[in-house]
């Protein structure tokens, strides 16, 4: 991936991320999140992870975000009232975030292996869908089945939760 694209997409991703947390209107937040996820998918593609990029678009930017928007509109949520931010939350959040970023920088600066460029691939084109599929159905078969059960349980749970009688 050319560095220009990386810079562009990561900058866009972070900008839309900022937009998510600054917008008071949940619909605007959700749409910013979709944009951020699309940029993230572009970064995935740039890392030769085409399958992950595609399901990022399909599942996240598609299905999950549609669900979010649907719920926001179902509940007819208005924009948050313009209230002064809780000082404690502001300060605490800023402090924790800053500390985290500082720690991250420290790690990166002390991680010389990470400063090397990405090694070249040994093949002309990756068949990553096949590779991921092989990995899932051979080495990770049991976790895969387990996740299937988890999804089933979650869907049953959602049905139960959304019944009217629930008090």
């Amino acid at each position: 991936m050319s560095p220009i694209l990386f810079w562009a997409f990561s900058a866009l991703m972070l900008a839309f991320g900022v937009s998510v947390i600054l917008n008071r209107d949940p619909v605007a937040s959700a749409l910013s999140l979709v944009a951020s996820f699309l940029c993230l998918a572009a970064l995935f593609v740039g890392l030769d992870a085409f399958f992950i990029g595609v399901i990022q678009v399909l599942v996240y930017a598609g299905a999950v975000m549609v669900l979010f928007l649907f719920i926001i509109m179902l509940l007819d949520l208005k924009a948050e009232k313009r209230r002064s931010f809780n000082k404690f939350a502001l300060l605490g959040g800023a402090a924790v975030t800053a500390l985290f970023v500082a720690g991250l920088l420290k790690v990166i600066s002390a991680f010389p292996a990470g400063a090397k460029p990405f090694p070249a691939l040994g093949v002309a084109s990756v068949d990553d869908v096949r590779q991921v599929g092989l990995a899932i159905f051979t080495r990770f078969n049991l976790p895969f089945q387990t996740v299937g059960v988890l999804v089933l349980v979650a869907s049953i749970g959602v049905i139960v939760l959304s019944r009217r009688q629930l008090k």
């Binding site: 924790v96 985290f100 720690g103």
Partner: peptide, 19 residues
């Protein structure tokens, strides 16, 4: 958010202990 703050603080402390 108070709980989230405490949680984040705990994670950061652990993080610093690790690095």
């Amino acid at each position: 958010q108070g709980y989230a703050f405490l949680f984040g603080t705990g994670v950061v402390i652990l993080f610093y202990m690790l690095i």
